[in-house]
Simulated assay, not measured.
Amino acid sequence: MAFPGMTPPMGGMPGGSGNDAQGLSNQDMALLYYSRLAAESCASKTVMSGVAGFGMGAIFGLFMSSMSYDSPMTPQNQQIADLPLRQQVRYGLKDMGSRSLSAGKNFGIVGALFAGIECCIEGFRAKNDLKNIAAAGCLSGGILGARAGPYAACAGCVGFSAFSTAIDWYMLSPSEPDD
Rank of each mutant, 00 (worst) to 15 (best):
G12K: 02
M13E: 07
P14G: 04
P14S: 09
G16K: 01
G16M: 00
G18Y: 09
G18E: 12
N19E: 12
S25G: 15
S25N: 10
N26D: 15
N26G: 08
Q27R: 11
D28W: 00
D28K: 08
A30V: 02
L32M: 06
Y33P: 06
Y33C: 10
Y33Q: 15
Y34K: 06
S35K: 10
R36Q: 14
R36T: 00
R36A: 02
A38S: 10
A39G: 03
C42H: 04
A43T: 09
A43V: 05
A43F: 10
A43C: 06
S44M: 10
K45D: 06
T46E: 05
V47P: 06
M48Q: 07
M48K: 09
V51L: 07
A52G: 10
A52T: 12
A52L: 13
G53W: 15
G53K: 06
F54W: 12
G55I: 01
M56I: 01
A58C: 02
I59S: 09
I59W: 10
G61D: 12
G61R: 13
G61F: 12
L62M: 04
L62R: 01
S65R: 09
S65I: 00
S65N: 10
S66C: 14
M67K: 04
S68K: 03
Y69G: 09
Y69R: 13
Y69T: 06
D70G: 07
P72Y: 04
P72T: 05
P72M: 07
P75S: 15
P75T: 14
Q76A: 14
Q76D: 14
Q78C: 06
I80T: 04
A81P: 11
A81F: 02
D82N: 00
P84K: 10
R86C: 00
Q87F: 03
Q87M: 10
Q88S: 09
V89E: 09
R90C: 05
Y91L: 10
Y91N: 15
Y91G: 03
L93Q: 14
K94M: 05
S98Y: 02
